[in-house]
Amino acid sequence: MGTFVQLIRPVALIVSAALLLAGCVSQPGPSERMIQQEKRITPDLDSSAPVLPKSPVDNLRLQAQAAQAEGNWDRAAGLLERALRLDSREADLYAEIAEVRLGQGRFVDAEQIALRGLTVNSGNEERSARLWYAVAQARSGQGNVEGARQARAQACEFGRCE
């Protein structure tokens, strides 16, 4: 009958070797996952101006901004859409998703999402301006000069004249 040491040694070797290799495999180990998660929860924004999220939607929005800053558009869009499912009344989220689509060069989608955002916004002129501005850019991207001009005029009406 083999002793425990005999039995456990090869297993321990395998397990420890595998743990060493864990950094190279695609599925992170639990502890590493925690660290990654922590990193995500604390977005890497400008350290001189720390922004503390107040709500889950804000939190996701901040993470999306960080992802966007890295050019990770898919991740940014995913985070914003997750936020939208938490609160579909947030017109800003539509503006931000539209801005991600602009960044991706998906101008048709950007225009539609910004227009959809305008239907959930009521009264907030700054948001209206932001959404119309996104519409204008999306239309420019599609070569719709006249449509872009009209959207820009709308944005200007709400205080954003660029």
Binding site: F4, L7, I8, V11, A12, I14, V15, A18, L19, L21, A22, V25, Q27, G29, P30
Partner: peptide, 16 residues
């Protein structure tokens, strides 16, 4: 599941 996330006692115990 990769081997490295399996509990060592389970792996050693299976062999025994």
């Amino acid at each position: 599941m990769p081997l490295q996330v399996m509990p060592p006692t389970l792996v050693a115990g299976l062999i025994v």
